[in-house]
Each structure stands twice: as structure tokens, then as C-alpha cells.
């Protein structure tokens, strides 16, 4: 038996919007730690890792570890039927083939049940090793979204370079080139507006902008984004999910052959 009650139901709505375009079908894993998901896109270039810790739910009951295969497009359709202020409860029976999403309005005058069919998904779980990253950049998520959107109108690939001067985002295409440099800036009124560049070693890596743009669908979840880079390793683009967890996107670099 599984019963997870999330008072801030809009978080789950936003989480789905952040991953449904990248991944079609995925297993949601439920354990005493929390509600989690790990899935790759169909071309195995990007991986998304989601964790919503059990402590973040108002009520969290998970009698045994459960893996539920869901079509994220269908799940998104159902969650779109929840109001932004609704409390969302996820319910499932052990060994059952459906999951129920219950939406309660804040005033308790409307209660809706949506039952969705589960599916069997053969997915391989990858081990993500702990890595020391050469450079870590924290910036406003809206700024990162703007940069990815702007650069993708010029080229297909972004080169992200971190030096002691700052972080540079570059692209090139048929019509020309573009370079955007951000310098560290911590003298801001609000901490979420800061640009913090932690450089242990300079690093420069190339990534497909199509994926970066897809990651920025998570922008409504968090005011800030953290980008962790190491030579010849996948980049990690992380958005916190309130106080309860995170969405981490891993993207394999383009490497000169």
C-alpha cells in the first residue's frame, strides 16, 4: 500500500512539465527515502534523476519498495486536471496495475479521483559515481533559460567555458556567432540573483542546445540553477524542488573524435 500526500500539489505538476518532453515512459520508485525516478531520453544522451524526499510529504506511507511504470504524457494530462492550489495524494496497492491521483481543493469542497493504468517498463538503472567537479556555476534559473533560448536561435551547440574571468556560453551557426560572458556577482539584494562561480580548474565543454533547452522546462521549480562541469564528464544541471528534493539532468558532452 502506498499513500503520499503532497500539500503543495503544484510542485508535482511542475515536476511533470519538467520531464515529460525528455522522457516518454519511466518507472517511479517509492521507498522509505522518498519518491524518485531515474530515466534516460530515447537516444541515451541525457539522463534525469528526480528525488522528492519522504519528509517533504505531509503523509508518506510506503509499506514496501514499489516501482510504478508510467507514461509521463498521460500522467501530465491527469495532473493538469489538478488546480494549482490543490493537495495531491498518490495512491497505489502493492501489485496493482493502476495508480490513483486524488486532488483536493484547499477548501475541501471539491475532491477528484483520477485512476491511471500502469505499464511494465524495462529500464536499466545507471550508477552515477560521485565526482569532484572542476567548476560549479550557480545562477538565476531565468538567466540560464534566457541564454539557452537566445543561443539556440543562432546555433545547435553551446560551448560552456569556465575561467577565472567568468563563465562563457558560446555558439556558432550559419548566420554568425554569439558569446555571452557572466562574471561572478554576489553583491545583489536577493541571494537568488547572485552568480557564483566556483572554479577549481578551468573547463570547456560542448553540449547540444536542444537538450539544454529541454532542461530549462524546470525553471518554474526554482529561482536558481547549478551547473557542474568536469572535463569529459556529463554536465549536471540541477534545480532544487522546494525543500524536498531535486531534479538533476545529466547531459553527455560532444567530444572531438
Amino acid at each position: 500500500m502506498l499513500e503520499l500526500r503532497l500539500v503543495q500539489g503544484s510542485l508535482l505538476k511542475k515536476v511533470l512539465e519538467s520531464i515529460k518532453d525528455l522522457v516518454n515512459d519511466a518507472n517511479f520508485d517509492c521507498s522509505s527515502t522518498g519518491f524518485s525516478l531515474q530515466a534516460m531520453d530515447s537516444s541515451h544522451v541525457a539522463l534525469v534523476s528526480l528525488l522528492l524526499r519522504s519528509e517533504g510529504f505531509e503523509h508518506y506511507r510506503c509499506d514496501r519498495n514499489l516501482s510504478m511504470g508510467m507514461n509521463l504524457g498521460n500522467m501530465s494530462k491527469m495532473l493538469k486536471c489538478a488546480g494549482n492550489d490543490d493537495i495531491i495524494t498518490i495512491k497505489a496497492d502493492d501489485g496493482g496495475d493502476t495508480v490513483t491521483f486524488m486532488f483536493e481543493s484547499p477548501t475541501q469542497d471539491k475532491i477528484a479521483d483520477f485512476e491511471m493504468k500502469l505499464m511494465d517498463i524495462d529500464s536499466e538503472h545507471l550508477g552515477i559515481p560521485d565526482a569532484e567537479y572542476h567548476s560549479i556555476v550557480r545562477m538565476p534559473s531565468s538567466e540560464f533559460q534566457r541564454i539557452c533560448k537566445d543561443l539556440s536561435t543562432i546555433g545547435d551547440t553551446v560551448v560552456i567555458s569556465v575561467t577565472k574571468e567568468g563563465v562563457k556560453f558560446s555558439t556558432a551557426g550559419d548566420i554568425g556567432t554569439a558569446n555571452i560572458v557572466l562574471r561572478q556577482n554576489t553583491t545583489v539584494d536577493k541571494p537568488e540573483d547572485a552568480i557564483v562561480i566556483e572554479m577549481n580548474e578551468p573547463v570547456s565543454l560542448s553540449f547540444a542546445l536542444r537538450y539544454m533547452n529541454s532542461f530549462t522546462k524546470a525553471t518554474p521549480l526554482s529561482d536558481t540553477v547549478t551547473i557542474s562541469l568536469s572535463s569529459e564528464l556529463p554536465v549536471v544541471v540541477e534545480y532544487k524542488v522546494a525543500e524536498m528534493g531535486y531534479i538533476r539532468y545529466y547531459l553527455a558532452p560532444k567530444i572531438e573524435e
Binding site: 534516460m40 537516444s43 541515451h44 544522451v45 541525457a46 539522463l47 536499466e124 538503472h125 545507471l126 550508477g127 552515477i128 559515481p129 551547440t157 560542448s206 547540444a208 564528464l233 556529463p234 545529466y250 547531459l251 553527455a252 558532452p253 560532444k254 567530444i255 572531438e256 573524435e257
Partner: peptide
């Protein structure tokens, strides 16, 4: 030429 790598060439099955 920059070749797109796959995530599976960095992270193995757990």
C-alpha cells in the same frame, strides 16, 4: 568533428 557521446558511456549499470 564533435561527436555526441551517450550517457551510457560514462555511467554503467548499477
Amino acid at each position: 568533428v564533435n561527436q555526441q557521446r551517450q550517457i551510457t558511456s560514462f555511467f554503467g549499470k548499477s
